[in-house]
């Protein structure tokens, strides 16, 4: 895996919101073929980090490179490589699923038959064909989330950044989305955030835990599980997560 190209590279990422120091120095290299599970308690800075990786937020310090392209120097070229599902899967409520995806296709530079092909392929990938002519505001939460996924996948990006892609989905849909992410893995770099630790075991090849804006664990899901003592027999990942991100553990890291 060592000579796979690094598709996402963050160096010394920091972000402040006034007094709040949300992200305090994150270094991350994600090569092609890796599915990275981004974990951390509420407010740890996961979404803020992903927003800096995708160019939505400017970092207060540090740099982001996507497929070797500096986000600050050439934002358009860098953004063109990324498929991004923002937290909550925002979309235009008065558009139909198909209109929305056509707009995304156009924004990605596809026209005519190629645009149609891309839209159809994206609809197929996340099984949205049935609701393609339904307006987004009338969709259930799961379908809306899948519309957001279709939007992110439409241009077959080499970098996928998904903020809580399975949040609010029923167990069947969760399973489907996990299968999809596993299938997409291959030659892509994928970063997904989640609060469901089994998800990390199920689909990720790497787990990164952040707390209070700092990385407190970085390794394989197996290595993460191995950190729990043998006496813990059930929910071993939960145990590790809690021990690394509880207030006292975080206080130790930040001082």
């Amino acid at each position: 895996m060592g000579d796979d190209p690094i598709l996402i590279s963050a160096r010394g990422l920091e972000r402040r919101f006034g007094e709040i120091h949300a992200v305090r120095g994150i270094d991350l290299d994600v090569p092609a073929g890796q599915v990275l599970g981004f974990l951390g308690p509420n407010g740890a800075g996961k979404s803020t980090t992903m927003r800096m990786l995708t160019g939505f937020l400017e970092p207060s310090a540090g740099t982001v490179r996507i497929a070797g392209i500096d986000m600050a120097d050439s934002p358009l070229a860098a953004k063109a490589c990324i498929g991004y599902l923002p937290e909550g899967a925002p979309a235009y409520p008065d558009m139909t699923v198909e209109e929305f995806l056509r707009f995304i296709a156009k924004a990605r530079g596809y026209v005519g038959a190629e645009a149609t092909r891309r839209v159809d392929a994206a609809l197929d990938l996340v099984h949205l064909g049935r609701v393609r002519r339904q307006s987004i505001e009338t969709l259930s939460k799961g379908f809306k989330r899948r519309t957001g996924l279709a939007q992110a996948l439409l241009h077959d990006p080499s970098v996928l950044i998904l903020d809580e892609p399975t949040d609010g989905l029923d167990p069947n849909q969760k399973h489907e989305v996990r299968e999809l992410i596993r299938k997409l893995g291959g030659e892509r770099a994928i970063v997904l955030s989640t609060h469901i630790l089994e998800e990390v075991e199920a689909v990720c090849t790497r787990a990164v835990i952040i707390a209070s804006g700092r990385i407190v664990f970085d390794g394989t899901p197996q290595a993460m599980e191995a950190k729990a003592p043998a006496t813990v027999t059930r929910n071993r990942l939960d145990w590790v997560f809690r021990s690394l991100t509880s207030a006292s553990a975080v206080a130790e890291v930040t001082t």
Partner: peptide, 13 residues
């Protein structure tokens, strides 16, 4: 609605 996050992360200036 947060769609601004979508627009500004698509390749638009």
């Amino acid at each position: 609605t947060g769609t601004i996050e979508l627009l500004t992360t698509l390749p638009f200036t």
